[in-house]
Design a binder for these strands. Structure first.
Length: 850
RNA sequence: GCAAGAGUGGCGGAAUUGGCAGACGCACUGGACUCAAAAUCCAGCGGGCUCACCCCCGUGCGGGUUCGACUCCCGCCUCUUGCACCA
């Protein structure tokens, strides 16, 4: 018996699609567009993972469906190919990362093509290609040559930055501009490992520490992007997005807006002032000490001679701790007294100033007023070091509370909070905050303040395999950004990819690349040796797909307006692990481009969907060490691409994590065989049961239910239930002795987005000569879905006692009468009084008896 | 600790303006075909009972609302993910 020969069929149709360029995307702007995007993969050396085809199949189904519905569909694929693993592999194998990248991309492309996705490969992008790097650098320079105009709430060109009248020296003007650019240089603590001679990423720190290396937090010169300028807009615009609510929440939390006040505390015997941020200004009267972060610049200035040594050693120890170690919750709080006292502006009382690493340098002002009576952390610290605890807020319900036993952190009413100028005694927390902020402002002791958790983006990496930052420095200390016509700035060819050992990137070891005479100015110059992080390329790739060959712009205005338009990408599917960083960074870049008119939407991705993880058969995360991985190549070899596609969609809801099941894919293979047998007989010819006959009413009902469900489920990304409906269809028609041709044709079209190879073959077997890809999706005949008779449930005292068939739309009296004809129902009603009857038309009758 | 999501047969899952719980598939059991097996086809498949009927119980646990709750409300438990001293 011939059966469904997936090997031959899949190879043949993939070749035909390629030959006929079936998936070529035209920029025909007269048609409505639909842009569906996958998160592009990092082409790792291990090849495609079984999880990749999950999201990709989902978007493939959507794109095929939308195309069949008449949309001009853009469904592109590319590679996010800069990255550390490739650089490491290059060092190990002593092969240039570009070659490894090329090899890995070839593998990925072959694997993706074998699954039969409808990507227009001619639009593929590769973030490491010179053509792409050029525009990534161009985007960086657009950000670099910009400042944020807070009053206009938008970025503007740096040439429009108003220069204060007292700054006249050209050098000072440049410094002023540099201080306002959206890309700037700052000294930022990074994870420096002296022994390795390199800066480590946060996730690498523990790995190396376990091996016995010392990693220290050391401030180093870094490029930063001023994403915090956009904090308000990044937060507000989340409300316009159709994203998973958990992702929206995570972004909101990450941006972390909180309202409060800054309060100034003068340091006794000095001219210094410690400014703190607090969200509870109403507890100011309860602030019994101050804490500075170990990195706070004021520490050195206020520390008393007798405490200088203790403070210095504490600060050194803090620098050796990783972020992770410093935030270990279980750990006991540590700190040292500086010997200095500051004055609480509300009470006039001197309060001791401490240094402790439970205060973070990078949040707020890097200093806090400690209110141990009403903050758990301060309470714990005060108990440890015997600092005073006073109560200034009482529970609103009037109950007593012992703040010496535990902090009272809830809102309440003020107490012990009055001085000659202001009193908040008896005021509820909200009002107390407003009152105290008013007083702070008028008395010059503070101001209201909105604080964000979001920090500026550390944008430089000391790596080889990334985009060079296109900036040069002259001997006189000035610098120049490359002009657009000088891009791309290419990476030098090098033999070694090891770090320079000085904290600089491997590029610093290539003097002939670093040192040169600038052709435009004729001056000696040195190039920036830092490269960009991997996030850079993925910040704008969705724009490049719209116009991948443009050499004059990253994307023409015309094509941006057509493919992105007001809504941006219509649907973006990818893993939840990118819920914060990638999506936040891309939104930031998009908004900068929006401010300069390069894109027309405020947000890049209107609708977002996260596919779930595919787990191993044992229900655990797939990993080589557990030996529970599944190789997509093997699945395709044994079961075919259509089976892989269908099975991954049938496993369960797209968003859920679900285990792989080898037996399950055999079930899908069986289903595909049954589909085949529906249309093709044992002699490999069109089944004689397929006839030019009309559907019976039951057949029409199943057919149109299937069309309707397929349409709805695709729109909702509920592919598992659509496939269940396909199975119902096949079960129904397998047992039929007449399989109307019209039903077979419509079914093949419904199946086409899911199992395109099989659908093409069957479409041809049904006598068609055109590709199923370009056919119109079948429409629902609602009249076929209307049943003349319906089965209704009959309950007695809310328990099901029988079922009766009645004409559809029967009225209440008819339903009640029909319900009582059921024998079992009659038995339950027998001898009892019907007290009430509930009737739901076409569904149910419920008799309540007493 | 905080936030979000989830808990339904042996397994993956289906069912939401509150109306037949368990669609569809897997596994399993029985039957047909076969010398036999595989494949295929047919039937059964939540638990209980006096086992074809009838009846009782059943969607993590305990309450509540309702004629009626997987679905809504209150309180717990467990799991997953994310964040985690953010003042």
């Amino acid at each position: 018996m011939a059966g469904y020969d997936f090997k031959r069929i899949e190879a043949q149709w993939q070749e035909r699609w390629d030959r006929d360029n079936v998936y070529g995307v035209s920029d025909d702007m007269s048609r409505p567009k639909y842009y569906v995007l996958d998160m592009f993969p990092y082409p790792s050396g291990t090849g495609l993972h079984i999880g990749h085809p999950e999201g990709y199949t989902a978007t493939d189904i959507i794109s095929r469906y939308k195309r069949m519905c008449g949309f001009n569909v853009l469904h592109p694929m590319g590679f996010d190919a800069f990255g550390l693993p490739t650089e490491r592999q290059a060092m190990v194998e002593n092969i240039h990362p570009a070659i490894i990248t090329e090899r890995n991309i070839a593998t990925f492309t072959r694997q993706l093509k074998a699954i039969g996705f409808d990507y227009d490969w001619s639009r593929s992008v590769n973030t490491t290609s010179e053509d792409y790097v050029r525009w990534t650098q161009w985007m960086f320079l657009r950000i670099y040559n910009a400042w944020y105009d807070t009053s206009a709430q938008r970025a503007r060109d740096i040439s429009e930055l108003p220069i204060p009248a007292d700054i006249t020296d050209p050098h000072d003007v440049e410094l002023y501009r540099d201080a306002h650019r959206l890309a700037y240089i700052a000294n930022i603590p990074v994870n420096w490992c002296e022994a390795l001679g390199t800066v480590l990423a946060n996730e690498e720190v523990d790995e190396w520490k376990e091996k016995g290396y010392t990693v220290e937090r050391r401030p180093m010169r870094q490029w930063m992007l001023r994403i915090t300028a956009y904090a308000d807009r990044l937060l507000a615009d989340l409300d316009t997005l159709q994203w998973p609510s958990s992702t929206l929440d995570m972004q909101r939390h990450w941006i972390g807006k909180s309202e409060g006040a800054q309060v100034h505390f003068g340091v006794d015997g000095t001219t210094h002032t410690v400014t703190v941020f607090t969200t509870r200004p109403d507890t100011l009267f309860g602030a019994t000490y101050l804490v500075l972060a170990p990195e706070h610049p004021l520490v050195d200035h206020i520390v008393s001679e007798s405490h200088r040594a203790d403070v210095a050693s504490y600060r050194e120890a803090a620098a050796l701790k990783s972020d992770l170690e410093r935030t270990e919750l279980s750990k006991v709080k540590t700190g040292v007294f500086t010997g200095a006292y500051a004055v609480n502006p509300a009470t006039g009382t001197p309060v001791p100033v401490w240094v402790a690493d439970y205060v973070l340098a990078h949040y707020g002002t890097g200093a806090i007023m400690a209110v141990p009576g009403h903050d758990e952390r301060d309470h714990e610290f005060a108990r440890t070091f015997g600092l005073p605890i006073v109560q200034v807020v009482a529970p609103a319900n009037g109950e007593a509370f012992d703040v010496h036993a535990a902090a009272f952190v809830d809102d309440g009413v003020g107490m012990h909070s009055a001085n000659a100028e202001v009193s908040i005694d008896g005021l509820p927390t909200d009002e107390a905050k407003r009152t105290i902020i008013n007083w702070l402002t008028t008395s010059g002791n503070g101001t209201s303040r909105i604080q964000f958790k979001l920090r500026d983006w550390l944008f430089s990496r000391q790596r080889y395999w990334g985009e060079p930052i296109p900036i040069m420095y002259f001997e006189d200390g000035t610098r120049r950004a490359l002009d657009a016509d000088e891009l791309p700035l290419r990476l030098p060819e090098v033999a070694e990819f090891k770090p320079a050992g000085t904290g600089e990137s491997p590029l610093a070891t290539v003097p002939e690349w670093v040192d040169f005479v600038d052709a435009k100015t004729g001056k000696r110059a040195k190039l920036e040796t830092n490269t960009m992080p991997q996030w850079a390329g993925s910040c704008w790739y969705y724009l490049r797909y719209a116009d991948p060959y443009n050499t004059d712009a990253f994307c023409s205005t015309e094509r941006e307006r057509y493919w992105l338009g007001q809504t941006g990408v219509d649907l973006y599917v990818g893993g939840g692990e990118h819920a914060v960083l990638h999506l936040l960074y891309a939104r930031f870049w998009h908004k900068v481009m929006y401010d300069f008119g390069y894109v027309s939407s405020t947000e890049p991705f209107r609708r977002l969907f996260h596919q779930g993880l595919i787990l191993g058969e044992d229900g655990r995360k797939m990993s080589k060490s557990l030996g529970n991985t599944i190789n997509p190549d093997h699945v395709i070899r044994d079961h075919g691409a259509d089976a892989l596609r269908l099975f991954e969609m049938f496993l369960g809801p797209l968003e859920a994590s679900k285990p792989w099941n080898t037996k399950g894919i055999e079930g899908i293979t069986r289903f595909l065989q049954r589909v085949w047998r529906l249309i093709v007989d044992e002699n490999d010819e069109l089944s004689p049961l397929v006839k030019d006959a009309p559907c019976t009413p039951d057949q029409a009902f199943v057919l149109h239910s299937t069309i309707k469900k397929t349409r709805e489920d695709i729109e909702n990304l509920s592919f598992n239930t659509a496939i269940a409906q396909f199975m119902i269809f096949v079960n129904e028609f397998t047992s039929a002795t007449v399989r109307p041709r019209v039903a077979m044709e419509s079914f093949v079209l419904c199946l086409a987005p899911f199992a395109p190879h099989l659908a093409e073959e069957l479409w041809m077997r049904l006598g068609k000569t055109t590709s199923v890809v370009l056919e119109a999706f079948p429409t629902v005949d609602e009249t076929a879905l209307v049943k003349s008779e319906v089965e209704i449930v009959v309950q007695v005292n809310s328990k099901v006692r029988g079922k009766v068939v009645v004409p559809a739309g029967a009225d209440q009296a008819a339903l009640e009468a029909a319900a009582q004809t059921d024998e079992n129902v009659r038995r339950h009603l027998d001898g009892k009084q019907i007290r009430k009857t509930i009737v739901v038309p076409d569904k149910l009758v419920n008799f309540i008896v007493g």
